[in-house]
Design a protein around this nucleic acid. Structure first.
Lengths: 261, 261
DNA sequence: TCAAGTTGATTTCTCAGACAAATGCTATCT
DNA sequence: AGATAGCATTTGTCTGAGAAATCAACTTGA
């Protein structure tokens, strides 16, 4: 099962749909997707470097660099003689932008969705409050511009989703907290993929713009408390927009939780 | 300036102080430390592969694998012709366990400390509340065992610090939220290094055990509200224990914030 | 004059093959 | 039965060679 090479993608007649990944990155994404999708389970030992690189029709060095990237993201662990094995889920760097994107590339499980929204429910209202206290005029302008673009395009098209992501990114940036900002890149990627996922099922009926403006106005007024509550409401509404039949009370059966080595 | 090779460390007469990193991991740590410490600033272009690997006295492939690992952690970006350059701080995966450990390996800046505690103040009280609702008996036993070890050794020795870390890790694990658990590994590593840092200045006068037991009892009783408040108090006390003269109101001058090339 | 294409130089990227080091397994010895 | 020494297997490291990408300068044509 050869990996999709960048040249083959562009040569396939389609426009270059992504960033034209290099070979090692393509292999890493390929293996990463198989791991987070559950095709390669924790504990599974990958084929040896010679065999694996041979199957993928790539050199050993390219394959090794891909494995090294996955190891850096906590997905695999290599040892001499033992081989390269998929790590326990607890070792995965789930907030790594790439890993998160891979997790949400397929149909994400209900429990995973809930986990992400739970994290957002914890982080983002507090982040909005901090942003209200520390934001400067430039943050405000970027956020205003993002919301105007969002209103222009709607989140049903790519440009609108990008604007949505820009708004949340800039909000977290306004907190001036490097760790919260670092969360941005990952969560923003996931939310972006998620909005696309919602769109996949059916176009969004409700207009999410009003609650975004309410958050903006609170931050503009440096009203921390109103920023917190309005952001909490925004996320609550976003959850209700998910095309989900019922939200489980627990998710101990989730694949991400169950597997552990 | 050759990188410290694993063999040299063990051959140096000292006991193997760590996990005997492989060569590529050693190089990655070496470069990673230089980057997060500010020696290589964002925008800085590293020496070419041939020159750099020559200076470090290693092969190009080992050096390349190291660079690939750093790229996977968002610290650098490689492009043909342009070379490999240090990414903007916003691109760094600051919550990656390795990156976090590297950041806290030296004397962390005041503003970085504050950033981490701010994140903990947001996350951990809520996590404690969720843990109180979802914990099972095994979580409880692991946490109880950790606190008993913590009381036995005190946080002034390594065994006690490990017990402290185990307690917080198991607490976050009890939330059953994969994303929160993923935060664990990084934050736990940082807090561990941090407690060591506190110890470096002067032994802890106050005994942090009572507030830990209060959190434990709240979770044991499945009292979500008390778990939240007692954890908030635990973190507040931990902040006061930091050997810091004054906490700044803002940190716009932080290196982590200022650099964005 | 200026835009568009061409060429050249530089750097990472990819490939190939060889040997070294680590380590789990097994047979052997005490 | 347990320790120990070899053996086999897998990743780790090294070397050397082109290929591909891309920035800068140059050339060409309207």
């Amino acid at each position: 099962m050869p990996v999709i090479k960048p040249e083959q993608v562009t040569a396939g007649g389609e426009r270059k749909n992504r960033k034209e990944l290099r070979l090692h990155s393509s292999i890493a994404r390929d293996l990463g997707l198989r791991i987070v999708s559950g095709r390669y389970r924790p504990g599974h030992v990958l084929a040896g470097e010679i065999e694996a690189s041979g199957q993928l029709k790539v050199s050993r060095s390219a394959y090794r660099e891909a494995v090294r990237m996955l190891a850096a993201k906590g997905l695999v662990q290599s040892r001499t003689r033992t081989g390269t094995r998929v790590s326990a889920v607890e070792q995965w760097h789930l907030l790594d932008p790439d890993v998160l994107a891979w997790v949400f590339a397929g149909e994400p499980e209900l429990e995973v969705l809930q986990g992400l929204f739970e994290l957002r429910t914890i982080i983002e209202p507090e982040a909005a409050a901090i942003a209200a206290a520390r934001r400067n005029d430039e943050n405000l302008e970027v956020m205003r511009n993002a919301l105007e673009r969002m209103g222009l395009h709607t989140v049903n098209v790519e440009a609108g989703r990008i604007a949505d992501r820009d708004f949340h990114s800039e909000l977290l940036r306004a907190t001036r907290n490097p760790f919260i900002i670092s969360l941005t890149n990952g969560v923003a990627a996931a939310v972006h993929a998620l909005t696309e996922f919602k769109q996949r099922e059916h176009a969004l009926k409700r207009d999410p713009l009003p609650e975004h403006w309410r958050v903006f106005e609170a931050i503009e007024a440096k009203d921390t408390e109103r920023a917190r509550t309005s952001m909490a409401e925004l996320i609550r509404l976003a959850i209700t927009d998910m095309p989900v039949k019922r939200w489980p009370d627990n998710w101990t059966d989730s694949r991400l939780v169950r597997d552990s080595g």
